[in-house]
Design a protein around this nucleic acid. Structure first.
Lengths: 110, 110
DNA sequence: TTTGGTACTTACCAAATGGTTAGAATAGCT
DNA sequence: AGCTATTCTAACCATTTGGTAAGTACCAAA
């Protein structure tokens, strides 16, 4: 009775894949989430571990992630400043996606 | 002995997440793979189901996917022409990623 | 002979993305 | 007084990405 749903279902605004991608499709987004993972990470640490990213991009992405409630930012008002980033509940839920990406990479690329 | 590997592992060229993203991070890539899925799909069908994409982008992405061995293209030399796209073995292995994206979208967005 | 259907291709332009460089803030250390 | 450390901001430019619109090819059917 409902055999061919898949092939005809259009991928429009309601498509869950599209919705996720609009949040996560950036060049660096998933890699940053991967690096934060289940840890609490300082800005400088991210700068070092996400190799190749510019400061501008890193900050821009982090702000975007905070705005979208995937990441929590904790500022220590010290000098020199100290800022820590952690995944929110929602952010943690992206880790299975990242895991699949990692697994695909491990098995078929690199 | 090897507790803190995660937090210090840099995400450089060897990072499997980065490798996968370099292949799949495009705005439309994963959505196209999602639409082809386990089916055999004609070009025109994709044009209709991946709503919002331009012909230029769709062709460009499909060519890229064929080049990267994620998709097989079968041309029927008829008039009017008929072209079918199918996922390769490798392409099928990206479906778990897409599934996670879909699940994340379903549970937290839309 | 004109129209239609399918799968592209091309040229041009606009917008999004990303990189580089310099600098701001601030307090402790020398 | 000047240096250092850390996080972030701003201005400028280059590259990449993406969209629009028009055109190509081919034959069959009207």
């Amino acid at each position: 009775m409902e055999k061919k749903l898949k092939s005809t279902a259009p991928c429009d605004e309601r498509c869950p894949v599209r919705a996720s991608l609009s949040l996560l499709a950036g060049k660096w987004t998933l890699m940053i989430l991967f690096q934060i993972n289940e840890n609490t990470v300082r800005y400088g640490e991210l700068k070092r571990t996400v190799t190749g990213i510019s400061e501008k991009m890193l900050i821009q992405e982090l702000n975007m992630l905070v705005e979208n409630k995937l990441v929590i930012k904790k500022v220590y008002h010290q000098v020199p400043p100290k800022v820590e980033y952690t995944l929110t509940e929602l952010g943690l839920k992206t880790l299975p996606i990242v895991d699949q990406l990692a697994q695909f990479g491990l098995e078929n690329l690199v």
